[in-house]
Every structure is written in C-alpha cells, then in structure tokens.
Design a protein around this nucleic acid. Sequence first.
DNA 1: AATAGTTTCATACAAGTGTTTGAATTGCAA
DNA 2: TTGCAATTCAAACACTTGTATGAAACTATT
Lengths: 209, 209
Amino acid sequence: MPSDRTRTAILAAAERLYADRGFGDVTLRDIVAAADVNLAAVNYHFGSKDELIAELFVTRSLALNRERLSELRAAEEVRGGRAPIEAVLRALVGPTLRGCLGPDNQRSTAARFMIRVSIESVPPIRRIRNREIDHLRKFVAAMARSLPGCSDVELYWGLHFALAMAQQTVRDSERLTKLSDGKCDVDDVDDIIERVVSVAVMALAGAWC
Amino acid sequence: MPSDRTRTAILAAAERLYADRGFGDVTLRDIVAAADVNLAAVNYHFGSKDELIAELFVTRSLALNRERLSELRAAEEVRGGRAPIEAVLRALVGPTLRGCLGPDNQRSTAARFMIRVSIESVPPIRRIRNREIDHLRKFVAAMARSLPGCSDVELYWGLHFALAMAQQTVRDSERLTKLSDGKCDVDDVDDIIERVVSVAVMALAGAWC
DNA sequence: AATAGTTTCATACAAGTGTTTGAATTGCAA
DNA sequence: TTGCAATTCAAACACTTGTATGAAACTATT
C-alpha cells in the first residue's frame, strides 16, 4: 500500500487552488508549492496534470450526485415515492448552493471546485462530463412522479431553469450583490434555495402541468 | 488615416476564434494565421494581446447595451414610459438569445463572443466589466416603472434570474438538447425568449409585487 | 524621382509550461 | 545489516507563449 500522504496533499492543494483561481491560471508549480511536494510528484502519482484534474472531477462529481440522490430518496421515502415537487428540486439545487454560498467558513472547497468545472469546462473534464446527463435523468423521472401528467418538455425546461438560476447565483453572486447594493443577501442560503425552488415550481405549474 | 485592413482583419479573426473556442486556447499565432497577417501585427496595431481583447470587448459591450436600450426605449414609447414588464424583460434577454441561438446562419459572432466573455472572464476583461452594473441599473429602473410598488429586492432577483436563465440556455444548450433527446428545441428562439420572460414575470409576480 | 513616415515581415528573445530523467533518499522485508 | 523496491528530488528538456527588434517593403507628399 502506497503512502498516500503526498497524493492527498496534492489533491487537496490542487482542489483549493482550482476552486479559488480557476483552471486557467493554476500551474503545476503552484500546486506543488502549495502542497509542499516536489514538482515531479504530480507526474509520478497521477501520470499527468490532466489526469489529476480528471481524478479530482470524478471524485467530486460522484460525491455530489450521491448527495443529491440521498436527499431525493429521503424526500421520496416520506410519502412512498411521491415527494412534492419542491422537495425534488431542493434535492437538485440544495447541495451546490449550500456548498458554494453562505458564510465563508461553511463553504466547501469541493462545491466551489465543481462550480469551476461548470464554468470553465477544461478538455480533460469535457470528456467525462457526459455522464451528468444520466444523473439528471433520474431527477426528471422524480419530477415526473411528483407531477404526473406534466409533459416531458416542460419538465426538462423546469429542471434546466432551476439549475440555471442556482448556478448563475453561485457564479455571479458578486454582481448581484453590487447591483443590489447588498440588499440581496447571498449569504442567506436557505432563502436563496427557496427562491430558486419556488420560481422553478411556478415555471412548471404555469405551463399547465 | 491608417489603412485599417490589417486591423479589422485581426479583430474579425480574433472575435470568431474566441467565440468558437474560448479565450483559453486561442493563441496569437492562431489569430494571425486566420487573419492572414504577420505575427507582429497584433502588437503593432493593438499594443498587446490583452489590449486586443479589451478593445473587442468594449466595442461589443457598447453595441449590446445600445441594442438592449433601443428595444427598451421602443417599448416604453408605446405607452409613455410605462412598458409592460414583459417588454422590459424581452429587451433585456432578447438580443443575446437571438444572437446566440437559432439556425446557424443567423447567429452572430458578436453575441457568441459576448457569451464567451460571460463564461470565461479573462483578466483584461474583468477589469472593465464593472460598467455592466450601471447598464443593468437602467433595466431595474425600467422594471420599477412597469411594476410600481414592487420592492427593489424582488426586482433585483427577477432581473438576476432572467439573465441566469437566458445565459445558461445559451451556454449549455447542448446539455438541454441531449437531456431532452431534442424535444426541447433550442433553435426556436422566440419560444425560448417567451419562456424566459414568462418565468421571470412569474417570479416577480409571485413575490407579491 | 526622392524622401519621410508608415506598415509589414522574418526572426529572435525571454519567460513559462508540462514532462522526463537519473541519481539520491527513504522505508521495509529478509 | 543488507538488499530491493518505492518514493523524492534537483535539474534539464522540449515546447509554446507573448513580445521585441531591425531590416525590408510600401505609401504618399514634395
């Protein structure tokens, strides 16, 4: 069994740097400096920079999906597989929003890293990202259970808009804060989640589901 | 007066390349090859790569703002400075959506370039982008005229969500297409505009304006 | 046609990138 | 301890990047 110390130090440093500054301007030398390991360690342990990014991404991607699905399952268990649509949408957007917004000390590097992924879409990740579709399909299915009779197309648009609002809020919370002179509180995560969810529900309901 | 041929050739080639492939992997050598000019021409005419990007951005940014505002003004003229909220939002999201989606031959490089800007946020642009806030404020003001009595906070959220849905639809139209097996038609621009606008209106109305 | 100013060009430069190498060091089993 | 594999390390490599240089070509005014 290899002594993982170097490996994990690299992963942690890389994730934090990517989350903070994006893929564009984080070099291998930045990472090894932050992890306090030798330059060659990355290639020794991961093969290449791209493979490091890919490993980071698949790990976090699986974790996020797991978190969403466990929230979804918890909501559906309450009433035998028929959760209210609000709960389904909360399970979809909640994990990301909670991890990325709110007081600094509560933000997770993992969530912020995933947002970077959704923003920058660097080559090694683009190749893997297709699996996301399969994951989202599960939520479409859950939404269909919540709103039987609602047409598929409207479900897709509803999910799409829900994710859009959540991601853009995370991505550009600064602009919203500036525009509103701080009157829109981007640290009140629960409020934001409810806003996103309720608008998405209105979108679905307004489309005569 | 300088012979602009080289200058404009560079601008056109750069805009197209940036729109297509993003800032990340477009090099000066790519640009000059596409423009069929010498490598040194960029530095001669623009000073540096960053200044080229900046010029491209301010030009397009001003044009987009102009387009939005003229649509807004046209809508407000009809009924003496009190356009329906739908028209205000249409003026906000319409130009971008029309330029970025729809049949290939109708898409404008300019709009696709601006979307890249909103995605990647490269340093030379980040420094300029603050002016966007002032521009958006004009739309908040117009929204307030349309919905007197609606609280500012709700207006900000409404505008934020409208832009979020529009931008994400452009940014990730591919995912939506795949997810829905083509059932969500991202080429039907008018339908998309009406969807975004109507959801945003519901968001505003649902907040007891 | 001669000249001065502008623009083009091939080429070189310095800095930064990810990766490789091969020797040194470590950790651990026999 | 000895031996062997795994790991670390400093250094160098090959390559790409944006930028700078100085000579050549062009343009237009005199």
